[in-house]
């Protein structure tokens, strides 16, 4: 088996539970991410998704286990692993542009100022921010615009691995949709490896190559790795037409609704605890859809 670009091996996180005992959030979590892959992790609150993300970012230390990127163990935060936080984490005393130049300047310390500014403006325009808006302070921007600045800052650094911690959690549904599109657009042009946390099943299907499903904590584990067998480029309206969409969605809903609880706390003998790979593909069994050459005709709903 070839080594994946990023491999998480037997990660365990324990916290003191405040009563002298020890609480194990997750145990022996192991999974891998290939270069250029967009991986989303889904699970209920408290299963340790954010802890895994902080460990990948180098902001937290696991109780045991290692994270290897490109064959080297990760220790401490680094420019190679960019993070987009849920609450944007823009520096409020800097303008949107300066927040991005802060990132670009940290990555390319030898660049002259004009080149740093140019690069920052390029990435801001990729997420649709141009003109006077980029000179405003974060407090003068809407939540959606702030998160775009944050995404631009992360992509401008061109990290080997980009970590997104519920980036759209604080946004309303309409804004979320637009920024998901922006994210897909900017991601499509870069071949960036992305690891993302979300609560939103539709968001996960739209964005991901693969979805990791976590069981409930304590003793949470990464139980399944679901391949999203819907070809790219995807659009929000396009994917619901795909024959695999509802099958995958139902599988995810079912897992989060029932099996995440049922599987919780079960420790199989295999110490590595690799997630079970799930591939749902209905396209092979059906006749080739004529939608490929002509627009799909209207269908009766109850046919």
């Amino acid at each position: 088996m070839s080594r994946p670009f990023l491999s998480v091996e037997q990660l365990t996180q324990q916290f003191p539970d405040g009563q002298g005992g020890i609480q194990t959030v997750f145990e022996n979590a192991s999974f891998g991410i290939e270069q250029g892959e967009f991986v989303v992790i889904l699970g209920h609150s408290g299963c340790g998704k954010s802890t895994i993300m902080n460990i990948l970012a180098g902001l937290a230390e696991p109780t045991s286990g290692v994270v290897k990127m490109d064959g080297y163990a990760v220790s401490g935060p680094s420019l190679d692993r960019g993070v987009v936080f849920q609450n944007y984490s823009l520096l409020p005393w800097l303008s949107a542009l300066s927040n991005v130049t802060f990132g670009v300047g940290a990555r390319h310390r030898d660049w002259p100022k004009s080149r740093v500014t140019e690069e920052a403006k390029r990435f801001l325009s990729m997420v649709g921010l141009e003109g006077d808006v980029i000179h405003r302070k974060p407090s003068q921007l809407s939540g959606g615009m702030r998160q775009r600045v944050s995404i631009a800052r992360a992509f401008a650094n061109q990290p080997k691995l980009l970590l997104l911690d519920e980036p759209f959690g604080a946004l309303d549904a309409l804004t979320r949709g637009t920024i998901q599109d922006e994210l897909l657009k900017i991601w499509g042009g870069t071949e960036q490896t992305v690891f993302m946390i979300t609560h939103d099943i539709d968001e996960a299907i739209l964005l991901a190559d693969r979805i990791l499903l976590m069981t409930n904590g304590p003793f949470a584990r990464v139980a399944e790795s679901v391949e999203i067998t819907i070809p790219r480029p995807r659009t929000r309206t396009g994917i619901v037409e795909h024959p695999n969409y509802y099958a995958i969605r139902n599988h995810l809903v079912h897992f989060l609704g029932e099996r995440s609880k049922a599987l919780s706390g079960q420790v199989p003998g295999d110490a590595m605890q690799r997630p079970e790979t799930v591939r749902i593909d209905h396209t092979a069994r059906e006749p080739a859809p004529d939608a490929e050459d002509a627009p799909a005709p209207l269908r009766a709903v109850n046919s």
Partner: peptide
Amino acid sequence: DDWVNVARTHELGHLRTAFTV
């Protein structure tokens, strides 16, 4: 902590973190 984490993920040294963040 978020702002300090921004400095950490951008590999700023102690002195630079103190002055720029």
